[in-house]
Design a protein around this nucleic acid. Structure first.
Ligand code: SF4
Ligand code: SF4
Lengths: 135, 135
DNA sequence: ATAAACTAATACTTATAGGTATTATTTTAT
DNA sequence: ATAAAATAATACCTATAAGTATTAGTTTAT
C-alpha cells in the first residue's frame, strides 16, 4: 500500500496547486483537473486549509492559494498531517516499542528502504517538485 | 502505513519459523511466541500453507514446517501473496495506468525510494534473515 | 436586495481490512 | 475405540478508511 489514498490525494492536490501557484484555484476547478471525488476533495481542502498549507477565500470568487512559501512545505509534513508519519518511522514489524534489547534480524534489512523513503519525504519540498517539472 | 498489518504478521511468522527451521511449530506455539490474534494467525497459516511457503501436518502432533528451501523465499513473494505487490510497483499517485505521455513531476522524486524498497524485497530471502541474526 | 458561486462543518453510508466464532476433519496417544 | 490435540474451511462481526449528503455560512456581481 505504501501511502494511503488520502495521502495520495493530498499530494496530487498540492502538486497541481504548486505547478499553478500564480492562480487561485477553486474546488470545482481542482475537481475537474484531478477527478478526485468532489465532496471528499472539498473536505480534504478544508483540512489542508486548517493545517495551514493553503488559504481559503470564501464567497463567489473564492478558492485556494498557498498560505506558506512552497520551499517550506516538505512532503513529510503533508503526509504527517493527513495520515501521520509514525507508522513509517516506527518498527517495521509494528511493535510500538521495540521489545528486544538488541535489534532483531528484520531491523537491518528494512533500515535502508525505510531511511531512503523518509529521507525523500523529509528533504523534498513542493518547490523542488515545481523545478522537477521543468526537466 | 508502508505494508499492511497482515503482511507484517506474515513476515513475523515466517521470520520466527526461519530462525527455528529445524523444528516443527504448531499454531499454539507460534501464538505464544508472536502474540498475533490466535484465530487470525491460524487463518494466515492456512493461507501461507496453501501458497506453498509452509507445509501443514494435521493431527495430534501436527504443525508447520517450510515446504521450500529458505533461500528460495523472497520477501517480495511473501508480500505479494498476502496483499499483492501491484500497489508498490505501480504509479505512486495511484493511477492504474499513467495517463500522461511524459512522466509527471512526482515520478522522478518517488523513483529512488520506490526502487530501493522493491529492490530490498526482491533480493532478500528468509535465508538472508537467518544469517543476519548471527551478526 | 438578491441570487450565484463559493467554502465550512458535520453527520451519514459504504467498502475494506482485520479479527472472531463455529464446525469439520485429521492424526496419534491411550 | 476413543479422546485429545492439532489443522481446515467458512461464515460472521468489528474497526477503520473512503466516500456521500445535507445544511450552514460567506462574498461578490448584478
Ligand atoms: S529490532 Fe526488530 S522489533 Fe525492534 S524495532 Fe527493529 S524491527 Fe522492530
Ligand atoms: S508519471 Fe506521474 S502519473 Fe505517470 S506513473 Fe509516474 S507518478 Fe504516476
Amino acid at each position: 500500500m505504501f501511502i494511503s489514498k488520502t495521502s495520495e490525494y493530498a499530494l496530487r492536490i498540492l502538486t497541481y496547486m504548486a505547478l499553478n501557484s500564480e492562480t487561485q484555484l477553486s474546488a470545482t476547478i481542482l475537481f475537474e483537473e484531478l477527478r478526485i471525488p468532489k465532496r471528499y476533495l472539498m473536505r480534504l481542502l478544508t483540512d489542508l486549509s486548517k493545517s495551514g498549507f493553503i488559504q481559503a477565500t470564501r464567497g463567489r470568487s473564492g478558492g485556494y492559494v498557498f498560505a506558506r512559501p512552497l520551499e517550506s512545505i516538505f512532503f513529510s509534513e503533508i503526509i504527517d498531517s493527513v495520515e501521520g508519519l509514525l507508522s513509517y518511522e516506527g518498527c517495521v514489524l509494528g511493535n510500538p516499542v521495540c521489545p528486544i534489547d538488541k535489534p532483531c534480524a528484520m531491523h537491518h534489512i528494512w533500515d535502508k528502504p525505510k531511511l531512503t523513503f523518509l529521507q525523500t519525504l523529509k528533504t523534498t519540498t513542493l518547490a523542488d517538485l515545481k523545478e522537477a517539472d521543468n526537466i
